[in-house]
């Protein structure tokens, strides 16, 4: 029952997010607003609701499964982008390698080295 109660909470915050998106005409997905509102709600309460924690673990573990059905269609419409595939692949592979390199270098430069005990923070 705990999982179902948690699921109801998530649906409630999803609807709240959708309400915010539509009323304020925000250019963002309802889920993101719902996520931010829920994080703010946790902050306000000072702790997390156990029901939500229980349902969030399996849902987050399912993310890869939930992406999958969307990937299937690409094999059937690949022909539509026939001329563009070299550009798309080069952009994705070179672009991702470059962005991995720059984020690693940036963070190595600015992230303080890990200490055994973070005593000063």
């Amino acid at each position: 029952m705990s999982v179902l109660r948690g699921f109801l909470w998530l649906l409630g915050f999803l609807l709240l997010g959708q309400t915010g998106v539509e009323l304020l005409d925000l250019p963002m997905p309802s889920g993101v607003i719902g996520m931010l509102l829920l994080a703010l709600w946790f902050l306000y309460r000072g702790r997390m609701n156990d029901d939500i924690v229980h349902v969030s673990q399996p849902l987050i573990a399912m993310l890869a499964l939930l992406i999958m059905p969307g990937v299937v269609e690409i094999f059937f419409i690949a022909g539509r982008y026939a001329h563009q595939w070299p550009a798309i692949l080069i952009a994705l592979i070179v672009g991702t390698l470059l962005s991995v390199l720059s984020s690693l270098l940036l963070m190595r430069r600015y992230l303080p080295p890990a200490t055994e005990a973070p005593a000063h923070e």
């Binding site: 699921f7 999803l14 993101v32 946790f42 849902l59 939930l66």
Partner: peptide
């Protein structure tokens, strides 16, 4: 036909996004 059915499963993407508030808060 497949997409129409799988859309039911992908409905869960909405609540799954909201659930990301948990690791964020942690």
């Amino acid at each position: 036909d497949y997409n129409r059915g799988a859309a039911w499963l992908m409905l869960l993407l909405g609540p799954a996004t909201v659930a990301l508030a948990v690791p964020l808060y942690q």
